[in-house]
Amino acid sequence: MEYFLQLVLAGLTKGSIYALIALGYTMVYGVFKLINFAHGEIYMIGAFTALIVGGALQITTDLAPSMIFLISLVAAIFFSAAHGATMERIAYRPLRQAPRLTALISAIGMSLILQNYVRLAQTSDFLPFHSMIPDIPWLTPGVSPITTTQLTIVVTTVVVMISLTLFIKFTKMGKAMRAAAQDRIMAQLVGIDMNRVATYTFVIGSVTAAIGGVLIANHMGQINFYIGFLAGIKAFVAAVLGGIGSIPGAVLGSFVLGMAESFGAGYISSAYEDAFAFIILIIVLIFKPSGLLGRNEVEKV
């Protein structure tokens, strides 16, 4: 029973992280019908920025850990968002009219660029990441089933999801995004600036990914330049599983995937932990390409 509970918690944690990344995928896909292959790299950059800023502050100053955590989180969010928006400007904006596969190729290229930029400027080794989230006193490690980091991750994810949903529903930009997702040309005709929508979409996606990056780095304790690839692919799987383009779908898909991985690794085989995501992806795309909450699209002739 205790083992079972552990697996549930691990799945929940994983699912939360996937959800934070999957949002970026699903929003970009919803509006631009582009699989932003480099999205995982934004998450990696978030984690790295937090490590660098946090590490530098820890070594050079004597601020309180919670203060350092906050500063590095803000830095991670800012720099990830900046990278996301810049990436859109360079690699995707000139290709907005091009066939979708062309943009996908460009996205793969962007992913390689960001990975190797971090590898060359920093290191290809794994770096230890000292958790900066201060322990909540009443969650004694080993006694309570959930750790502080896990709790933080789940709570943060829920908060981010709720605020994002509110943003999409009620703000002007949120409405513009929904309009653009429905019909891009029509949206432009009624005066929606697609370039602004693009920037916002990439910034928001990058912000949530950065939060995910910082949290997972605190949880896992080490990072390297390649963590974005697998996390990105899995988050994409989650987005597809839930129905790409749908925000609640991305969240649902992420939790399902997190649980499936956790239980698959716990009860079947941990060697194939990464394969579960791929197998789920293949099954979903073949049998229900619209995902759990997505709408069926009939191609117009």
């Binding site: 699989i35 597809v240 992806l281 293949i282 795309l285 073949i286």
Partner: peptide, 28 residues
């Protein structure tokens, strides 16, 4: 066979998944 009905970008990701599964199988 399984990927026949998939659209372009999904096909790319699914073939990627197949490639990774193949590698994991060879590894394990």
């Amino acid at each position: 066979f399984p990927v026949l009905r998939l659209r372009g970008d999904y096909l790319a990701i699914v073939t990627l998944a197949f490639g990774e599964i193949m590698r994991l199988l060879l590894l394990n």
